[in-house]
């Protein structure tokens, strides 16, 4: 009995020793952590490779970029709680405002530091339906009809879900002549048709495409196209509503973290590279609308349907206001959504 126990202790000690030596070996190269929202996995997998190559050629330094993905609000919370992100690339500006507000790790005017509201690419909200569109869903008002099952994530945790919600609200205002009370009723009718709220956009997509729940998925444009790519155009199709919202997913340096890691230069270059021809090309390739379409591949640009878009500033007076009115505790969303 004893030798066995001693041997086990020895193995444990060796494992501990090897664990302790791990971080030391990693310090010869620069490391960046990009904390991002749910549907950007494929984009950043590609972009990180391109940037590492570019940075190696330019400076000779090896940079290893790690990724963390999840619902945008949840990711912001994780950064506030101490996840050491050098850069944050989230779904909406409010989540980064929260990081600035609560952790003080970046200045409050972060969004003015990069061009185009710090959003190197945009997206919008479209519908993904099953092939042949059996329920005949054409526009937002079809979502409120009884008997249509709508899949969207939870606006409390998901950035995409908040864009979905606001796009529907904007449509309602536009079609009813600006009546807020009627818009609220309209949203309540849509959410009555939602059987399950996942915490992030990717969770909702798997619910719709993999588990086969629902008639229509409210999705990021890029997420809709990606699903068709992954599962085949014989299974799903994208429906473009008459009106949608211009979604601006912003990116930022998390100043204090980058300073501590000594990665400020490389992190800044990383974000700038998103605006470069290569970055814009990759964005378009992964179905994000590039800010400078002239830099992207024309064939990729041709895939984006024409949609009339409104901005959050036009209709809701910016994220701070929209968040307070609609998604804060006791806001409009809490009033209209009753879990079943």
């Amino acid at each position: 009995m004893f030798p066995m126990i001693f041997r086990r202790g020895l193995v444990g000690a060796m494992l501990l020793a090897s664990l302790a030596s791990l971080p030391a070996a990693a310090q010869t190269e620069k490391a960046l952590l990009n904390v991002s929202y749910d549907p950007t996995r494929e984009l950043y997998a590609d972009f990180n490779n391109a940037f590492s190559k570019y940075w190696k050629e330019k400076t000779g330094e090896v940079v290893k970029i790690s990724q963390s993905h999840g619902g945008s609000g949840k990711q912001a919370r994780t950064i506030i709680d101490g996840l050491e992100a050098d850069v944050a690339t989230l779904a909406l500006a409010y989540d980064i405002d929260e990081i600035a507000e609560r952790s003080g790790k970046l200045p409050k005017d972060w969004q003015t530091r990069l061009p185009n509201n710090s959003s190197p690419y945009t997206s919008t909200i479209v519908f993904l339906v099953r092939k042949g569109n059996p329920k005949g869903i054409k526009d937002w008002n079809d979502l409120a009809k009884p008997g249509v099952s709508v899949i969207t994530p939870n606006p409390k945790t998901s950035g995409g879900a908040r864009w979905n919600y606001l796009a529907a609200w904007g449509y309602a205002l536009k079609t009813n002549g600006g009546d807020e009370a009627k818009a609220k009723e309209f949203l309540a009718a849509i959410f009555k048709n939602v059987p399950v709220l996942d915490s992030g956009a990717r969770g909702s997509t798997t619910t719709f495409v993999q588990r086969g729940l629902g008639d229509v998925l409210l999705a990021w444009e890029n997420e809709g196209f990606l699903s068709i790519n992954e599962f085949g155009p014989d299974k799903f199709e994208v429906v473009v509503p008459s009106l949608s919202i211009l979604a601006e997913p912003p990116v930022t340096l998390v100043d204090e973290v980058a300073k501590k890691h000594g990665t400020t230069d490389v992190a800044k270059a990383y974000l700038d590279y998103l605006y470069s021809p290569e970055g814009q090309k990759l964005a378009a390739k992964h179905y994000y609308r590039p800010r400078k379409p002239e830099l992207a591949d024309p064939a990729d640009n041709a895939r984006f349907p024409n949609v009339t878009l409104f901005t959050i500033d036009d209709v809701f007076g910016g994220w701070q206001k929209a968040q307070k009115t609609h998604f804060a505790d006791g806001g409009t969303f809490d009033e209209i959504y009753q879990p079943k």
Binding site: R41, E42, S66, S68, E230
Partner: peptide, 24 residues
């Protein structure tokens, strides 16, 4: 965990991540 790929993912968390990347 913080869900950093290759750093703070255990096996069960890795399953979830790969599943969410359509890599069933």
């Amino acid at each position: 965990s913080g869900h950093i790929r290759g750093q703070t993912n255990t096996l069960p968390l890795h399953v979830e991540i790969v599943y969410n990347e359509y890599n069933f």
